[in-house]
Amino acid sequence: MQYSAVVPAHFLSRPNRFIARVELEGQILNVHVKNTGRCAELLRPGCTVYLQPGDNPARKTPYDLIAVDKDGLLVNMDSAAPNQAVAEWLAAGGIGPLDELRAEYKLGASRFDFFARRGEEKILMEVKGCTLEENGFARFPDAPTLRGLKHVEELAALAGQGWRCYVMILLQMEGMKQFSPNWATHPDFGHALRRAVEAGVTLLTYDCRVTPSSLTVNAPVPADLTPPESLM
């Protein structure tokens, strides 16, 4: 996926989860943060961030904060970007040729990121964007995610009913050594992901090629779902 008219700025502070204060060409601005997660390890005073002009010129925040330079590692922070990048990847044959592909598919009381069909095979996919990393090891989630937990459990149940189900963890950065659940933050999600894989859900963990103005699904990254001994 592509952004347009992206400009660099310096991050100053984050008054709340929706707003960041930045310095752009000597001017102090409030900008919209396209990620409501904590992201404290990313948004540090003085770091370089990347901004895209907002769609509405009358908006109080003229720019969206979409990416950050974390000590030389470029991380895309846009929470809407993973689904757009994965949609392009699926359409290009990421999991093979598809006869049908739909986003935001409603099934019962739930809504899943993607529905696809290959012949008689029905496919569901839920995508989770990951921005948390430490020394090349990526983890998800950075905060408890009841919605994510619910979707993983539902996909595990649907896999037992004949659906082909995927959970795709998209690392919004490049060059990660490994992915694992964030056992310290939300162990229930990690356990649910393990159970889902055992029930037949396919786990895909991919990193991305990231530039200030683009995000593209890149290559598989090994995943380790083994919990620490204290949680086994």
Rank of each mutant, 00 (worst) to 15 (best):
67 A>G: 08
16 N>D: 15
58 A>M: 11
79 S>C: 11
62 P>Y: 08
40 A>C: 00
66 I>E: 12
15 P>W: 06
32 H>W: 12
67 A>D: 04
60 K>Y: 10
48 T>Q: 07
38 R>I: 15
47 C>H: 02
64 D>K: 02
43 L>M: 06
26 G>T: 14
54 G>V: 04
70 K>M: 14
6 V>M: 11
28 I>T: 13
6 V>F: 09
16 N>L: 04
64 D>L: 10
14 R>D: 02
67 A>Y: 06
86 V>S: 09
44 R>D: 01
80 A>M: 09
70 K>I: 14
74 L>R: 02
42 L>Q: 03
46 G>R: 01
34 K>Y: 00
78 D>A: 12
30 N>M: 05
29 L>D: 11
52 Q>L: 08
68 V>G: 04
85 A>V: 14
10 H>P: 00
9 A>M: 08
46 G>I: 13
35 N>E: 06
76 N>Y: 07
43 L>H: 00
61 T>R: 03
66 I>G: 12
25 E>I: 12
63 Y>S: 10
62 P>M: 07
61 T>C: 06
55 D>T: 10
26 G>E: 08
48 T>P: 04
65 L>I: 14
17 R>N: 11
18 F>K: 02
59 R>I: 01
16 N>E: 14
58 A>Q: 12
37 G>H: 09
12 L>D: 03
37 G>W: 00
72 G>R: 03
52 Q>P: 02
68 V>S: 04
34 K>I: 00
